[in-house]
């Protein structure tokens, strides 16, 4: 039980993610999450606006179930596998965040500065959440995948487009973290 409530080290999590990929391929499917965003568009009726979203939802049910499972995995973790461990961040990271104006750093998964109800109902806070989402949705579909589809599946199968996409992921992430964060926060 101790093992389940402790945070898992990288050398436990990385191989387990590879096993998730193996299971997906074993059962005849690709490993990827972001294509579900397009399925959600189809469910919301986007097929009426653009042919791009005209797909047979029955062919996507396996993927929607995968996503439902991911949510349930989160619920199980939060109720049964949470040891209330603060995130063991590099002290320099904590210092950098304090300098940016973040407090109570790493006492939970997410900073209240971005994910509290208070932040949600402020104009700036709302724009950050919806804007970040739009970047994720637009970018991942334009690139043709996200961390699972490109970084893990694509890199491991030695695909050049995935290498370019991952380089892009890091350009964007570094620009946001190093240049834009001091302007936003």
């Amino acid at each position: 039980m101790e093992l389940l409530t402790q945070p898992w080290a990288w050398y436990i999590a990385g191989p387990l993610i590879a096993i998730i990929l193996l299971l997906m391929f074993y059962f005849g499917r690709n490993f990827g999450v972001s294509s579900n965003l397009e399925t959600f568009c189809t469910i919301s009726g986007a097929g009426k606006v653009s042919d791009y979203f005209k797909t047979d939802l029955k062919t996507k049910s396996w993927s929607l179930l995968f996503v439902a499972g991911i949510i349930i995995g989160g619920v199980i973790s939060s109720y049964f596998l949470q040891g209330n461990h603060p995130i063991d961040l590099n002290p320099q990271t904590v210092q950098d965040l304090t300098d940016l104006g973040f407090s109570n750093t790493a006492t939970s998964f997410i900073p209240p500065e971005i994910f509290s109800t208070e932040a949600l109902f402020s104009l700036k806070g709302f724009l950050i959440l919806i804007g970040a989402g739009m970047l994720i949705g637009f970018g991942s579909r334009y690139a043709g995948g996200c961390t699972s589809g490109h970084a893990i599946t694509g890199l491991s199968s030695l695909q050049l487009p995935s290498l370019l996409a991952v380089i892009g992921f890091f350009i964007g992430g570094l620009v946001m973290t190093w240049i834009l964060f001091p302007l936003i926060f």
């Binding site: 971005i114 994720i136 991942s140 043709g144 892009g168 964007g172 620009v175 936003i184």
Partner: peptide
């Protein structure tokens, strides 16, 4: 891939989560 990837990376860093973790 490069432009799409960069746009995705901006969002990944800002939200601190990519599509999988959003659902988690």
């Amino acid at each position: 891939t490069l432009v799409g990837g960069t746009i995705f990376g901006l969002g990944w860093a800002l939200a601190g989560s990519c599509p999988g973790p959003i659902f988690v």
